[in-house]
Write a protein that binds this DNA or RNA. Sequence first.
DNA 1: ATAGTAAAAGACCTTTTTGTCTTTTATAAA
DNA 2: TTTATAAAAGACAAAAAGGTCTTTTACTAT
Lengths: 143, 143
Amino acid sequence: MFNKETEYAIRGLIYIQFQNDLNLIPNINEIALNIDAPQHFMAKILQKMVRQNFINSQKGKGGGFYFDKTKPELPLIEIILLIEGDKKVNGCAYGLNKCDNNNPCPLHNQYVPIREAINKLFSEETIQSMAAKSHIDFKAPFV
Amino acid sequence: MFNKETEYAIRGLIYIQFQNDLNLIPNINEIALNIDAPQHFMAKILQKMVRQNFINSQKGKGGGFYFDKTKPELPLIEIILLIEGDKKVNGCAYGLNKCDNNNPCPLHNQYVPIREAINKLFSEETIQSMAAKSHIDFKAPFV
DNA sequence: ATAGTAAAAGACCTTTTTGTCTTTTATAAA
DNA sequence: TTTATAAAAGACAAAAAGGTCTTTTACTAT
Ligand code: FES
Ligand code: FES
């Protein structure tokens, strides 16, 4: 479904939110270990999240990453759009340069409703709603 | 949705079927030109399709590619499975090593029904059904 | 103040995907 | 039976994705 970068971003952000809910702010080392991502790759991804203001970071002792609790929840689709771009979300499955009702490809009519269901899911589902569904033994058997 | 190889494979096979329906057997040069794919990359992809017996090929003057009319229609999912593998079709969106009802990720419950709808579509839709939906001015504005 | 800690930045490397070029093999038409 | 033609094969190269390593900057607790 997603590329590695998006996958790590989603898992990492959920891990951050999950720890924040326990009043902890995890650092990159801890995050990467627990979601099974390469540490420095994860660092780059989280830097991108910070630049987008999806999360905040704190340097120095006791530092790490955390969500601003005064901000609205973060829908998955924003992360997907940032990393994979609009084509992933609205592109033509057949490869036309543009998905257009007036110039439908042979998959269009059946594909579009499914794509809309996916977009609805990823617009409604947020990092926060997913963190709430995660359990205490956070680390799942990735890879 | 798909990677380039799958996209070219689907478009190429549809083009072949479309021409076969007009009692023509197109060669690689013609196919690549019309579906906007790089010629030698397309050639490799079609070689793979021939090895899988999805299509037949004919060398020499007047040669090209064609479907065996006595065989059943070719569902898209077979091409997707061959090129992108089972993870594309049944993998966990969150990145667990295995999508499992007994160990659901935070996306599982909402994602699985959508994934099933996609798989249903690509199992029912065939190269032949799609070729029938293509129109005379075959070449669409790809890229 | 300063020492230790953790994020930020960026150079560099590996693998996969995508694409190109050349040679070989098979076939059919003349 | 030769010749033109088209697929098959495989070496090579560019670009993108994925991943590693080192240095710099900022912050905080002591
Ligand atoms: S035109 Fe292809 S999906 Fe809409
Ligand atoms: S476990 Fe993740 S989609 Fe099923």
